[in-house]
Design a protein around this nucleic acid. Structure first.
Lengths: 213, 213
DNA sequence: GACTCGTGTGGAACGGCGTTCCATATAGCG
DNA sequence: CGCTATATGGAACGCCGTTCCACACGAGTC
């Protein structure tokens, strides 16, 4: 299966692209754990064995699905100092709408989808005239923060129940911790459920950019 | 199974602590995927069903194992500006020695082990006189960067082969990317295999602290 | 137009997983 | 000395990713 260019000669034949598109549908509907080869095969009206002719394994499938999503990253507009928060928010909203992306994006080695993100961030750092030996650190820092926060936020709402009630429960469990061992955590718990996530998130981005200057 | 205080009355009885200790042994030897209830049970000379009397499920077991590891975090010494890199490096080395920690530490909601880490970082931020409304952002930023980098580094070496040859392969695959779409990534690939990970890592920490000032 | 062969197909089966079930054993208590 | 809650452990359940293999089809060759 060397090239994707080679199209299936069969009439109603399955293509790699169709499989990935169907996988994304299933992932959006039932999450990462809901995607199995059996349900995917039945949705495509075939058997599990057929899928393995087109894709190597589940890891491969997830990486490709993630890449499809990240390819939609729009070209940033405006000054670099504005473009970076713009990219950050785009990723934040992407993972909010498709929480399953959290898994496939954070693998070793970094999947292509993640490289696209780093590329976009790195270019803005270059445009910001960040010193070359700081670009690596800066891109890594931005990327890890963006992904970690987006993942966390996405996971919060993937639980199924309402996001605010979930955060309230977490805050309550933090309040129940030992008062001396977890003084700082407890002081955070009030802030946890009331704060504006996106504003908080953008604050972190601004902090990084501030440090890069 | 309300309290841990209640000790097994049986002679050679199994305790929750013994199970967790054995689990950590298996995890250190064979990684997260190597830990199954069957191998854990056979190591403890019992059946899988017995384990479920003492622990709720695998997630519970992993969270508790992670907590045991993070509890060993030493009390930071010296000025706060030195204590934070100190904590960061401790986590970095911990995950380097026990790569399986990467998984259990990054769950939703944040496991107790992770809260311990945030507590330690937050206290240093307070000592650094960081404004209260920036402590949350700062701790989150530090935590996400420390964990992400440590995880990445740990995963690199968990592959089995030598770390440098692994990074060389990654660098080569980056060089093979499209020259215009991935100009920034390609410019990074040279730096990837030659750089000093720990120095790079500390550079990122310094950058965050710089931004907080 | 028949033959053939590489390209696809799909359902059964494999081995392993987390977890549950249940018959059984044991230790403390009335 | 029974009784009962505690604790055990092996069998079994349902599901997973993946492999296997018998088979169908479409295009090139004579």
């Amino acid at each position: 299966m060397p090239d994707d260019i080679k199209v299936n000669r069969r009439a109603g034949g399955l293509s790699r692209g169709q499989i990935i598109a169907a996988a994304i549908e299933v992932l959006d509907e039932t999450g990462e754990e809901g995607l199995t080869f059996r349900v995917l095969a039945s949705r495509l009206a075939t058997g599990p064995g057929t899928l393995y002719w087109h894709i190597a394994n589940k890891e491969d499938l997830l990486a490709e699905a993630a890449d499809v999503m990240v390819r939609a990253l729009p070209a940033p507009m405006g000054a670099p100092a504005e473009a970076i928060p713009q990219i950050a928010l785009w990723v934040y909203d992407l993972l909010d709408a498709h929480p399953w992306l959290g898994g496939p994006l954070t693998r070793t080695p970094p999947p292509l989808a993640l490289l696209r993100l780093y590329e976009a961030l790195g270019r803005q750092l270059q445009a910001l005239q960040v010193a070359p030996d700081r670009q690596f650190t800066g891109a890594t820092l931005l990327g890890s923060y963006i992904l970690s926060e987006s993942r966390q936020n996405a996971a919060n709402r993937a639980i199924g129940q309402d996001r605010t009630t979930f955060l309230d429960e977490v805050a309550a469990s933090w309040q129940a911790l030992d008062a001396t061992d977890f003084a700082f955590i407890r002081s955070l718990s009030a802030r946890l459920s009331s704060h504006d996530d996106r504003a908080e998130f953008l604050g972190g981005i601004a902090l990084i950019l501030n440090g890069l200057r």
